[in-house]
Amino acid sequence: MLNKNIYLILIISFVFSISFWIGFNVNLLPAEASINAPIYDELFKILLIIGLIIFIGMTIAVIYSLFKFRRRKDQIGDGIALEGNFSLEIVWTIIPSIIVLIIGLYSYNIYDRMGGMQELNHSHEMMSSNTEKIWAGISQSSNNDIANNNLSVEVSAMQFAFLFNYPKGEFISGELHVPVNHKVSMRMESKDVIHAFWVPEFRIKQDIIPGQPTILNFTPTKVGKYPIICAELCGPYHGGMRASIIVEEESDYKDWFNTNNKAEVDL
């Protein structure tokens, strides 16, 4: 009996250690290039570890049963006539309930930290003076160090392109240029069907819906060029509906802005 318990403890510690090792050492995600990305990756890591523990544990249980309880050639009888065990049923109802409840509340905390719970129509007052309804989106409260420095961009999506309108410079660009470590507020509108704005390196996505303006706020943290992908099937050339977001140092961004600027004022 003691022997059996030692094997069980060994197997459980093996499952836990391999799950934690994979969770902390195997990176399945692309580069982290926004404030949201490390918050997302924290949730991903925890879900990966819990998922691996359950998956490896169940797989070992199935394979062990198939091996240990297989019918040998000389055996003709049945297994044990065990029809159930009420306390076991209670255990594997209550433990998973607690786990999913904790995961649900924790992920909500993550969502709040990513800005998903912000009041949308208030955080958007810089964009337009009228009281237009914002239907959905991800908004971020202004961080102290980057406050009052929002870059506002108006995004229009159509089959099969994104256009970025810079209201301060009165020009439209096919690429989204943003300065690093500045909060960007985008107001997005579709001209025809539903599209979606996705930057994998930023871990953000928001549908762009005809008739319902949405917003998306983010703060890039890493200089580079990242793809903007339409993630909602929008027609035959949906797969080719791409644009680029170019995150640059502030001076590079200013140069780019000034060469495109059609407004009278300087940035």
């Binding site: 918050i39 997302y40 949730l43 991903f44 879900l47 995961i103 649900g104 992920s107 909500y108 993550i110 969502y111 990513m114 998903g116 991800i138 979606a196 996705w198 994998p200 871990r203 953000i204 996505k205 993630a231 909602e232 099937l233």
Partner: peptide, 10 residues
């Protein structure tokens, strides 16, 4: 989980 889904949705 909403934040997980926002990245991998679609």
């Amino acid at each position: 989980q909403v934040p997980f889904d926002i990245h991998v949705h679609d």
